[in-house]
Amino acid sequence: MSWDAEFTHHFDRCADSMRFTAFLLCGNHHEAEDLVQSAFLKLYLAGPGMAHREGLDAYLRQIVVRTFLAERRRVRWKREKLTGELPEVPVAGSLSEDKLVVWQALAAVPAKQRATLVLRYWHDLGVEETAAALGCTVGTVKSNTNRGLKALRQRLGREFGGLWEEVSRNA
Protein backbone atom coordinates (compact mmCIF):
# COMPACT_ATOMS: atom_id res chain seq x y z
CA MET A 1 0.00 0.00 0.00
CA SER A 2 1.37 3.46 -0.85
CA TRP A 3 2.08 5.94 1.95
CA ASP A 4 -0.64 8.29 0.65
CA ALA A 5 -3.26 5.53 0.82
CA GLU A 6 -2.01 4.34 4.21
CA PHE A 7 -2.03 7.90 5.56
CA THR A 8 -5.55 8.54 4.24
CA HIS A 9 -6.79 5.34 5.85
CA HIS A 10 -5.12 6.25 9.15
CA PHE A 11 -6.52 9.79 9.02
CA ASP A 12 -10.07 8.54 8.39
CA ARG A 13 -9.78 6.06 11.24
CA CYS A 14 -8.43 8.27 14.01
CA ALA A 15 -8.93 11.96 13.17
CA ASP A 16 -11.97 12.34 15.45
CA SER A 17 -10.20 10.69 18.37
CA MET A 18 -7.17 12.95 17.93
CA ARG A 19 -9.41 16.03 17.71
CA PHE A 20 -11.01 15.11 20.99
CA THR A 21 -7.64 14.48 22.64
CA ALA A 22 -6.49 17.88 21.38
CA PHE A 23 -9.70 19.46 22.70
CA LEU A 24 -9.04 17.98 26.13
CA LEU A 25 -5.55 19.45 26.03
CA CYS A 26 -6.48 22.89 24.62
CA GLY A 27 -10.02 23.37 25.87
CA ASN A 28 -10.87 25.07 22.59
CA HIS A 29 -12.15 23.50 19.37
CA HIS A 30 -10.34 25.92 17.07
CA GLU A 31 -6.96 25.41 18.75
CA ALA A 32 -7.59 21.67 18.84
CA GLU A 33 -8.26 21.60 15.10
CA ASP A 34 -5.05 23.53 14.41
CA LEU A 35 -3.11 21.20 16.69
CA VAL A 36 -4.44 18.08 14.96
CA GLN A 37 -3.76 19.49 11.50
CA SER A 38 -0.20 20.25 12.52
CA ALA A 39 0.22 16.75 13.99
CA PHE A 40 -1.13 15.03 10.88
CA LEU A 41 1.14 17.16 8.69
CA LYS A 42 4.16 16.12 10.78
CA LEU A 43 3.08 12.48 10.54
CA TYR A 44 2.58 12.74 6.78
CA LEU A 45 6.02 14.25 6.27
CA ALA A 46 7.70 11.67 8.52
CA GLY A 47 5.84 8.69 7.09
CA PRO A 48 7.86 7.89 3.98
CA GLY A 49 11.06 7.67 6.03
CA MET A 50 9.59 5.48 8.75
CA ALA A 51 10.86 1.92 8.71
CA HIS A 52 8.08 0.57 10.98
CA ARG A 53 4.56 1.91 10.74
CA GLU A 54 2.70 -0.41 13.09
CA GLY A 55 2.69 2.13 15.95
CA LEU A 56 1.13 5.03 14.08
CA ASP A 57 -1.61 5.65 16.67
CA ALA A 58 0.86 6.00 19.52
CA TYR A 59 3.22 8.05 17.38
CA LEU A 60 0.44 10.43 16.33
CA ARG A 61 -0.78 10.82 19.92
CA GLN A 62 2.82 11.61 20.90
CA ILE A 63 3.01 14.25 18.17
CA VAL A 64 -0.26 15.85 19.33
CA VAL A 65 0.87 16.02 22.96
CA ARG A 66 4.38 17.24 22.21
CA THR A 67 3.11 19.87 19.77
CA PHE A 68 0.65 21.08 22.40
CA LEU A 69 3.41 21.31 25.02
CA ALA A 70 5.77 23.07 22.60
CA GLU A 71 3.09 25.67 21.87
CA ARG A 72 2.53 26.22 25.58
CA ARG A 73 6.28 26.62 26.17
CA ARG A 74 6.48 29.15 23.38
CA VAL A 75 3.89 31.29 25.12
CA ARG A 76 5.14 31.30 28.72
CA TRP A 77 2.14 33.18 29.98
CA LYS A 78 -1.27 33.60 28.59
CA ARG A 79 -2.83 37.02 28.45
CA GLU A 80 -6.60 37.11 28.33
CA LYS A 81 -8.02 39.17 25.53
CA LEU A 82 -11.31 40.93 26.05
CA THR A 83 -13.78 40.28 23.26
CA GLY A 84 -17.43 40.76 22.67
CA GLU A 85 -17.92 37.00 22.40
CA LEU A 86 -18.48 34.45 25.10
CA PRO A 87 -15.81 31.75 25.53
CA GLU A 88 -16.27 28.61 23.48
CA VAL A 89 -18.06 25.78 25.24
CA PRO A 90 -19.13 22.39 23.87
CA VAL A 91 -22.60 22.19 22.35
CA ALA A 92 -25.28 22.02 25.03
CA GLY A 93 -27.10 18.73 25.26
CA SER A 94 -24.22 16.73 23.84
CA LEU A 95 -22.36 16.54 27.15
CA SER A 96 -23.40 15.87 30.68
CA GLU A 97 -23.08 18.69 33.18
CA ASP A 98 -20.46 16.68 35.07
CA LYS A 99 -18.25 16.41 31.98
CA LEU A 100 -18.49 20.15 31.37
CA VAL A 101 -17.45 20.85 34.96
CA VAL A 102 -14.50 18.47 34.70
CA TRP A 103 -13.33 19.82 31.33
CA GLN A 104 -13.48 23.41 32.56
CA ALA A 105 -11.42 22.45 35.61
CA LEU A 106 -8.99 20.46 33.42
CA ALA A 107 -8.41 23.53 31.22
CA ALA A 108 -7.06 25.37 34.29
CA VAL A 109 -4.49 22.67 35.16
CA PRO A 110 -0.92 23.44 33.96
CA ALA A 111 -0.16 22.12 30.47
CA LYS A 112 2.29 19.30 31.34
CA GLN A 113 0.06 18.04 34.14
CA ARG A 114 -2.99 18.26 31.87
CA ALA A 115 -1.20 16.29 29.14
CA THR A 116 -0.20 13.65 31.69
CA LEU A 117 -3.77 13.33 33.00
CA VAL A 118 -5.23 13.06 29.50
CA LEU A 119 -2.78 10.32 28.52
CA ARG A 120 -3.04 8.41 31.79
CA TYR A 121 -6.79 8.59 32.41
CA TRP A 122 -8.40 9.35 29.07
CA HIS A 123 -6.19 7.11 26.93
CA ASP A 124 -5.51 4.60 29.72
CA LEU A 125 -1.77 4.63 29.08
CA GLY A 126 0.55 3.20 31.68
CA VAL A 127 3.26 5.22 33.37
CA GLU A 128 5.97 3.97 30.98
CA GLU A 129 3.87 4.62 27.86
CA THR A 130 3.00 8.10 29.09
CA ALA A 131 6.67 8.84 29.79
CA ALA A 132 7.55 7.74 26.24
CA ALA A 133 4.80 9.90 24.73
CA LEU A 134 5.89 12.94 26.74
CA GLY A 135 9.61 12.32 26.38
CA CYS A 136 10.22 12.37 30.12
CA THR A 137 11.03 9.99 32.97
CA VAL A 138 8.64 7.71 34.80
CA GLY A 139 9.20 9.77 37.95
CA THR A 140 8.14 12.93 36.14
CA VAL A 141 4.95 11.22 34.97
CA LYS A 142 4.17 10.12 38.51
CA SER A 143 4.77 13.56 39.99
CA ASN A 144 2.82 15.31 37.20
CA THR A 145 -0.05 12.86 37.71
CA ASN A 146 -0.05 13.50 41.45
CA ARG A 147 0.16 17.28 41.08
CA GLY A 148 -2.40 17.34 38.27
CA LEU A 149 -4.94 15.30 40.22
CA LYS A 150 -4.37 17.50 43.27
CA ALA A 151 -4.92 20.66 41.19
CA LEU A 152 -8.00 19.14 39.56
CA ARG A 153 -9.49 18.11 42.91
CA GLN A 154 -8.86 21.60 44.30
CA ARG A 155 -10.62 23.18 41.34
CA LEU A 156 -13.51 20.74 41.42
CA GLY A 157 -14.07 20.99 45.16
CA ARG A 158 -15.25 18.34 47.57
CA GLU A 159 -18.51 17.51 45.80
CA PHE A 160 -16.65 16.70 42.58
CA GLY A 161 -13.45 15.23 44.07
CA GLY A 162 -13.45 11.87 42.25
CA LEU A 163 -15.37 13.04 39.20
CA TRP A 164 -12.34 13.13 36.85
CA GLU A 165 -11.70 9.42 37.21
CA GLU A 166 -15.41 8.66 36.75
CA VAL A 167 -15.80 10.88 33.68
CA SER A 168 -12.65 9.51 32.04
CA ARG A 169 -13.78 5.90 32.65
CA ASN A 170 -17.24 6.57 31.18
CA ALA A 171 -16.06 8.51 28.13
Rank of each mutant, 00 (worst) to 15 (best):
E33G: 14
F7L: 15
G27Y: 09
R74T: 13
A15F: 09
R79Y: 10
S94V: 12
E71I: 05
F23N: 03
V89Y: 05
E54T: 15
A92C: 03
R73E: 10
A51Y: 03
C14I: 15
A58V: 14
R73P: 02
Q37H: 11
K81Q: 07
Y44C: 07
M50W: 02
R73L: 07
G93I: 02
H52Y: 14
Y44H: 14
D34E: 13
G55I: 02
Y59I: 05
T67M: 07
A70R: 07
T67G: 03
A46F: 03
E71Y: 08
G49D: 12
F23H: 10
T8A: 14
H10V: 08
F40T: 00
S17Y: 08
H10S: 10
Q62L: 08
K42M: 06
L45E: 12
L82S: 05
A58E: 09
L60T: 06
G47E: 02
L43C: 04
V65D: 04
L69E: 00
C14M: 15
G55Y: 11
D34G: 15
V64K: 01
L86G: 03
L82P: 04
D57I: 01
L24C: 14
F20V: 09
R13C: 13
M50R: 07
K81S: 10
D34K: 10
E71A: 14
V75W: 02
F40I: 02
G27I: 06
P87S: 02
L86F: 09
L43Q: 05
E71P: 06
T67A: 07
R53F: 01
E85D: 06
T21G: 13
R79E: 09
L86D: 05
E85W: 13
V65T: 08
L86T: 09
F11I: 00
F20R: 11
E31K: 11
E71V: 06
F7Q: 01
V91L: 14
H9E: 13
L41A: 04
Y59M: 07
F11K: 02
Q62D: 11
G55N: 12
V89K: 09
D16L: 10
S38G: 11
E80P: 10
Q62V: 08
D12C: 09
S94I: 06
M50Y: 01
L69A: 00
F20E: 10
E88C: 13
V75K: 03
K81F: 08
A70V: 04
L82Y: 05
F68V: 05
A39W: 01
A92Y: 04
D16A: 15
D12E: 14
H30W: 12
P90Q: 02
E71F: 10
K78N: 11
E80T: 12
R72P: 01
A39H: 00
L25C: 09
H9S: 15
A22D: 08
R73M: 05
H10L: 13
C14R: 06
V36K: 00
A70W: 03
E80W: 12
D16I: 06
A15Y: 13
G84S: 13
S38V: 04
L24E: 12
A32E: 03
V36I: 06
G49I: 03
L82D: 08
A70C: 02
R72F: 00
Q62K: 15
G84L: 13
A32W: 04
D57W: 10
A15K: 11
S38A: 12
Y44P: 04
L43N: 02
Q62E: 15
P48C: 07
R19S: 08
D57M: 01
F68P: 03
R19N: 09
L60Q: 01
R79C: 11
L35K: 00
